[in-house]
Simulated scan of single mutants.
Amino acid sequence: MAAIPTASQMLASSGMPAELAAGTLPGLTAALAALEQEKGLSKDGLARVLAQFEDNLQRLTAIATDRTAHPEICDVKIDRPVFILGLPRCGTSILHALMGADPQVRTPLQWEVAAPSPPPDVATFDSDPRAAGFDDYVAENFVGAWEDVLKAHPIGARIPQECGMMLETAFQGINPTMLFRLAGYYKWYRDADTRFGYQIHKMWLQHLAWKNSRKRWVLKVQEHAYHLPELFSVYPDAILVQPHRDPVTVMASISRLIEVIRSVSFTEIDRAALGRELLHLWHDGQVRSMAWRKDNPHVKVHDLRFKDIVSDPVAAVRGIYAHAKIEFTEETKLAVQRWWEDNPANKHGQHKYELADYGLTRKQVETVYADYIDAYGEYL
């Protein structure tokens, strides 16, 4: 098995500026400590973890280098960004893509988050060769065991990217847990002060918007629910949107997705253990967000039903725009309709899952999520 380097060794080899290295060190240290304890990874899985960690550091170093060369990036304003949060598998990706189809809205795209340097330029944005390179990577790698990922989660150069791929460059995001389990790192992340992560997140948005800005940013990832105080410390004018769905369906679907994602890195997957892990992991985030919402009633959150998103996506987006004070134009309407028509459900095949496959019952899920169901029952 490959030797696991220390956090200091990885940071030194990345060439990251000292200030950013200091902020990244706690999370990277926690991730590597958890990796030392993770016994289920295959040889290839361990190599995949280390390559992912190195890529995270390299991407952050790249945007820091560009920022030093072009200090005006620091002056880019991020005005009233819209954050979509909630449980996984409840329509967040659909909403992100629907709103991202609007020409006045900016979402981070998967290719530019994967290869951010040099900063994307509006003049070449539609023809940037990094986009084709990303699609080539997907075509080459998302085959075999990983092919099922595409049935559940859209992947492609021009598809909006989740915030997790930016937060993980600061090692203050949940992606390492989703990809590689790393239970110790999840415990660290859950209880950490992640303000540094959101400062890095803002650096990313400024970087991507410098030469390609639009009126508003729309962003999403479920893990924002864990750390809303830190999010608002960096984005005090943030606007929140939260779709909801029956947690029983959510747990079955996300368990299958994470099983597929981890399958290439683990020698075997204990489905029942995975079900228990994710059942409580995602509930942790809802406990945090429900408490924060109760303590901050002045922040109005736009709640909506997953069922309403899929039954009338135009009306769903129109409601969000009214909440966020974004102009809903005829061009917006046509863009939303066009995206919906071009992206039917099961476009890449059917994502099949059963709750019982993961050792869970409806009663178990409803018991754990009783507080969530009580709080948001009208939206389920």
Results as ranks from 00 to 15, higher is better:
Q222R: 09
A324N: 03
G173I: 00
E327R: 10
P118F: 06
D102N: 13
L334N: 07
L179I: 09
A225H: 03
H201Q: 00
A192M: 02
I155L: 13
E54R: 10
L167D: 00
Q222G: 10
L231G: 00
V82W: 00
H323C: 06
R89M: 04
S289P: 05
N346V: 13
N212R: 09
K333F: 02
G173K: 00
L50C: 06
A139M: 10
P116R: 05
L355I: 09
E54P: 01
A145M: 12
H207K: 00
D66Y: 05
E38K: 08
R362M: 12
K363P: 02
G27A: 01
P176T: 05
N346D: 14
D312Y: 03
E54H: 12
G285P: 04
V287I: 12
R158S: 01
R59P: 07
L355W: 09
R245P: 04
P129F: 03
R288L: 14
V365E: 07
T61L: 04
H348M: 11
P243W: 06
L60F: 04
D148Y: 01
L205M: 13
V260R: 02
E327H: 01
D193E: 06
M203H: 11
L46C: 07
W111F: 08
S117T: 10
K77E: 11
E72T: 10
L355Q: 07
L95N: 02
G100Q: 11
D342S: 13
G91N: 07
S14W: 12
N141G: 06
A183P: 01
W111D: 03
S117L: 06
V49M: 07
F142G: 04
Y185L: 08
D44R: 14
R130S: 11
T6V: 00
M251V: 14
E147G: 08
D312H: 02
G133L: 12
E259H: 12
R89Q: 13
I200D: 01
R271E: 11
V218N: 05
D44P: 01
E140Q: 15
P118W: 07
V221I: 03
L182C: 01
I320M: 04
L182A: 03
L35N: 06
A3R: 07
K151I: 07
Q286S: 09
K294N: 07
P154R: 09
E36H: 13
P116E: 04
G45W: 02
D128I: 02
D357I: 05
I155F: 13
P26R: 05
P243H: 06
L240G: 07
T249N: 15
W340A: 04
H227Y: 06
S311P: 02
E341M: 09
I254Y: 05
W339T: 05
E36D: 10
Q58Y: 04
F53I: 01
P297R: 10
Q222I: 03
I94V: 12
V82A: 09
E341Q: 15
N346K: 08
P5E: 03
D75G: 10
I258D: 03
W146G: 09
A3N: 09
F232L: 06
A252H: 04
K347C: 15
S93P: 02
A170T: 00
K215W: 01
Y321E: 08
